[in-house]
Design a protein around this nucleic acid. Structure first.
Ligand SMILES: [Mn+2]
Ligand SMILES: [Mn+2]
Ligand SMILES: [Mn+2]
Ligand SMILES: [Mn+2]
Lengths: 217, 217
DNA sequence: TATAATATTTAGACTAATCTAAAAAATAAT
DNA sequence: ATTATTTTTTAGATTAGTCTAAATATTATA
């Protein structure tokens, strides 16, 4: 079984590897975990002994199939808890990530399956991120971050990044929620800021913001 | 702030001291924590530096006022989570203690207050144990364990011990739930077993069982 | 291709929580 | 009042996770 710390490393590796599709370097993992490269080296040795990652000295790590399953289980718990906090307890969507970071490490499988059932088997969490099922199956829709698109684009917001509380407060203010229609009315070459239409309202958003909005293609 | 382990020690000390009314010895704490006396000595030094207990070498530990407050906050979380698991998620009362042992260490105060509100500010958990309020105030009713009483006693079950899953399954079978009327119809001197009437049914229970049933005086 | 810059790993040290074995204090028994 | 027994504490090790500083490997630059 993985410790809480190991679970957090594995989750970070899973995310940084884009779901296990590319390898992750020591320094980016250190950055993501707010720790030092030396600590990362120690930890990835442990994780490769446990066979949730493979590790080639100096060339980064890759998630194994077993590792993917475990990472997805933690992600499932994280997203179900976030859904519970918003849907059942009335939290705002910018208040749940930190709490879910703790709740995702509670071990009972029965608990998380009952919670899933209680919530009505939700497909996505409050930020639009898909919730893996009990077997670790996750349904991903094709998506792009808004900053990659240009004037004339029209589509639907799929998800937003969930870890920055201030960004979420701002997105809430402009109504940038999953499910909403969004249109790029103009784009400034210089700083890649955009004019977007969300519902019947118009906003100017910086690239810093558009990077964090994921939309349909 | 206390670590998870420190919280568990403090909670055990609080319980063993009967809510801070008497001092706790090293060996009984070791027994309760399933650890060795040497480990306990190390830990109680740490806890006394943090001023949640006082400690006199060779003479045991006592909980401070600050320690009581912290212990009661953990107990509040434990009992609210147990209530949630039974009331909201449909767990049986014998399945919740272990899970609550993990959930009680989630830190968010906002979470537990929202949970309390969602549950309708319950006064007691599924086993009848009182739930402290946000300020650490706990309402205790005068109570005795059933084994202390004799033939002719009549009263109401207040609570049952929550940590033994098999005991709880048995108590469920004979209908020994908090709130139920109970009567001692007879007591055997030799082994202190009893005949009890619960509702309209009659049962013979051993002292091992009657010790774990708390009733009104 | 040799050298400089960057990335990664190793070495050694630290804290928290645990253990076993030995020493010391308190309590019980003669 | 000694001696024996029990309880508690100390000493020294161990593991997980972290750090800094030094060594080594890789990549970029001249
Ligand atoms: Mn999150
Ligand atoms: Mn989320
Ligand atoms: Mn319990
Ligand atoms: Mn309980």
């Amino acid at each position: 079984m993985l410790s809480l710390t190991e679970e957090n490393y594995l989750k970070a590796i899973y995310h940084l590897s884009d779901g296990g599709t590319k390898s992750v370097l020591t320094n980016e993992l250190a950055e993501a975990m707010s720790t030092k490269a030396a600590s990362v080296t120690d930890m990835i040795k442990k994780l490769s002994v446990k066979e949730v990652i493979t590790y080639e000295k100096y060339y980064g790590v890759n998630v194994t199939t077993a590792g993917k399953t475990k990472a997805l289980h933690v992600i499932r718990k994280h997203r179900l808890w976030e859904t519970f906090l918003v849907q059942t307890l009335g939290f705002n969507w910018d208040e749940v990530h930190e709490v879910a970071e703790e709740l995702e490490h509670i071990h009972s499988i029965r608990l998380i399956d009952k919670l899933d059932e209680f919530l009505g088997f939700p497909k996505a969490d409050p930020h639009g991120d898909p919730i893996p099922d009990g077997k670790g199956k996750i349904s991903t829709r094709p998506q792009v971050s808004l900053d990659q698109l240009g004037e004339g684009y029209q589509g639907i917001i799929i998800a937003v990044k969930d870890s920055d509380s201030n960004l979420l407060k701002y997105l809430d203010k402009i109504g940038a929620k999953p499910g909403r229609k969004i249109k790029v009315a103009g784009k400034e070459e210089y700083d890649e800021s955009m004019e977007v239409h969300i519902g019947d309202k118009k906003f100017f958003i910086s690239k810093e913001v558009s990077k964090n909005i994921l939309v349909t293609q």
